[in-house]
């Protein structure tokens, strides 16, 4: 076991890790941040997406030690300072972009990463960007709408109801 230090949601943290400790296990078991989920073991589903130094990564496919010293953001760090939902989170609630909630943290983190790179994505750009995040509940309709809305676009007009 080695002590691994990084910044998580703005706070410097450290916890014990082995070489094989994945970032997702470090967050969930080491730090108790269970908002980040594990939905597969082949780096496909995206339930574990977090931001490392501002970039979306699959935390089940990164060793904690490999990102020591990094700035990590998780779903627990996405709300506004006053505790209210952030823009992407609020859009997901407003547009019913989640049902069981299990893929949701990864969806929100990927969507936020998209909007950071591309503030006004088209429907097609959103769908392609989210191809690494699997949702079994929503058929993606309301997720795409939520991301459109979070980018300030008229989601209702773009998604024929």
């Amino acid at each position: 076991m080695t002590k691994v230090t990084m910044t998580v949601n703005g706070t410097p943290v450290s916890a014990e890790a082995e070489g094989r400790t994945l970032l997702v296990n470090f967050l969930r078991e080491g730090l108790g941040l269970t908002g980040t989920h594990v939905g597969c073991d082949t780096s496909q589903c995206g339930a574990c997406v977090v931001h490392v130094d501002g970039k979306a990564v699959k935390s089940c496919t990164v060793f904690a030690m490999d990102v020591a010293g990094s700035d990590v953001r998780t779903i627990e760090g996405m709300a506004n300072a006053d505790g209210s939902l952030g823009v992407v989170q609020q859009a997901f609630q407003d547009h019913h972009g989640l049902q069981c909630g299990f893929c949701t943290p990864g969806m929100v983190m990927s969507s936020a990463a998209l909007l950071a790179e591309n503030p006004r994505p088209t429907e097609s750009e959103i769908r392609h960007y989210l191809e690494g995040n699997i949702c079994r509940c929503t058929g993606y309709h309301n997720i795409v709408k939520a991301v459109l809305a979070a980018s300030g676009q008229d989601a209702g007009a773009m998604a024929a109801e």
Binding site: T34, G35, A79, F92, L98, F102, P105
Partner: peptide
């Protein structure tokens, strides 16, 4: 709007 969304969207759901 769904009230349960708040916990799911903030990583506070308990699975």
């Amino acid at each position: 709007k769904r009230r349960e969304d708040i916990r799911f969207l903030t990583g506070k759901g308990v699975y």
